[in-house]
């Protein structure tokens, strides 16, 4: 069995960690690192019988992830303080939101940038407040800056000059030019408060955003992690709310994300053994390309299946940009590269 297959089986609980050989572990650790999921695996295997060096390495990862989570939440607190004086409300998204809400997928999850959602009418004020509080632009390229502002769902990325951490300020969850345009007002209006005092998306919206981020907004790089988020979110929400899957279906329809959410659910079932309710399991022959893309990694942790990667890369642009805009974008980028 391939290392990535073993890795997914371990997460899904289909395989006993005690049965792995040292060479199996080489591959599993390499793949898990490549997917930035070694600490996630470490949490899943907490308490399992493991070879001593693996147990030590996974304990390191759990400890390091705890520090990283704390640092990510501190970054959210910094944003809150920066935006509080102008009473600008924001909703935490993705990893920081999962951590703030204490959700199970946050255990060991790597958190990169701080992602926040601000209502579109507040975006200018939010930008000013962040700039005053020490964040600065990452990109100085005028074309990229204009592109972000005209067509994207977020401001150009900002980085804090003292703490060296990035913030992505979103006003919606998919690019404005995307074929699908979720309803950002509904996302903000229905946001929930965590005990720590941060707003996060309501459960169904959180799962919708997770699926959109996984399947509609990129080339599926890092897809195993996003799919793991989706698996944990839906499992945990359904455990406390028997009507969750129905609510998710309705909410996905409202955002135009029904097909995306259903595909995410099927993929989570196929890879992580998610339990789906009736009506969600209808198989779709095109899912196998997604499964293949998600599992495209060799036993050394290296991305494999170059042609499929490229196909998904092209698909991501096709989804995000109308043809004319895409042509203009590629032309500009090509000219710049030729000049530079």
């Amino acid at each position: 069995m391939s290392a990535v297959g073993t890795f997914v089986d371990l997460l899904a609980g289909r395989r006993d960690a005690a049965m792995l050989t040292p060479r199996d572990w080489d591959g599993v650790i390499g793949v898990a690192r490549a997917e930035a999921m070694l600490a996630t695996l470490a949490h899943q295997l907490k308490g399992a019988a493991l070879p001593a060096p693996v147990a030590a390495l996974l304990a390191d990862q759990r400890a390091a992830a705890e520090v990283a989570t704390q640092q990510a939440l501190w970054e959210a607190e910094m944003a809150r303080r920066a935006l509080a004086s102008e009473r600008i409300e924001f909703v935490l998204l993705k990893g920081t939101a999962y951590a703030a809400a204490g959700l199970s997928c946050a255990e060991g999850r790597q958190i990169g940038d701080l992602d926040i959602l601000v209502p579109a009418h507040d975006i200018g004020r939010a930008e000013n407040e962040l700039l005053e509080a020490g964040w600065e632009w990452v990109k100085s390229d005028p074309y990229d800056d204009a592109y972000y502002r005209e067509h994207m769902h977020e401001l150009p990325p900002l980085i804090h000059k003292a703490r060296d951490r990035m913030i992505d300020v979103h006003h919606t969850i998919l690019p404005q030019t995307h074929r699908t345009t979720p309803d950002p007002l509904a996302l903000v209006a229905d946001a929930a408060m965590t005990e720590s005092g941060f707003a996060v998306l309501a459960p169904a919206d959180m799962a919708c955003h997770c699926a959109a981020h996984l399947l509609a907004d990129g080339d599926l790089q890092g897809g195993l992690r996003n799919l793991w988020d989706f698996h944990c979110l839906t499992r945990d929400f359904a455990a406390v709310d028997p009507g969750f899957w129905g609510r998710l279906d309705a909410r996905a329809a409202k955002h135009g994300l029904r097909a995306v959410v259903h595909r995410a659910a099927r993929l989570a079932r196929d890879l992580y053994a998610s339990e789906l309710p009736e009506g969600w399991g209808r198989s779709n022959p095109r899912d196998r390309w997604f499964r293949r893309r998600l599992l495209a990694r060799d036993d050394w942790g290296h991305a494999s299946d170059f042609a499929l990667q490229q196909a998904f890369y092209i698909r991501s642009h096709w989804l995000r940009m109308p043809p004319l805009l895409l042509a203009r974008h590629l032309w500009t980028k090509w000219r710049k590269r030729a000049a530079g």
């Binding site: 040292p22 060479r23 572990w25 080489d26 650790i29 070879p51 060096p53 390495l57 050394w300 942790g301």
Partner: peptide, 13 residues
């Protein structure tokens, strides 16, 4: 120690 899994992977390619 062949029984010990690798903590870190290096690839030269």
């Amino acid at each position: 120690d062949a029984a010990r899994p690798a903590d870190a992977t290096v690839r030269l390619f």
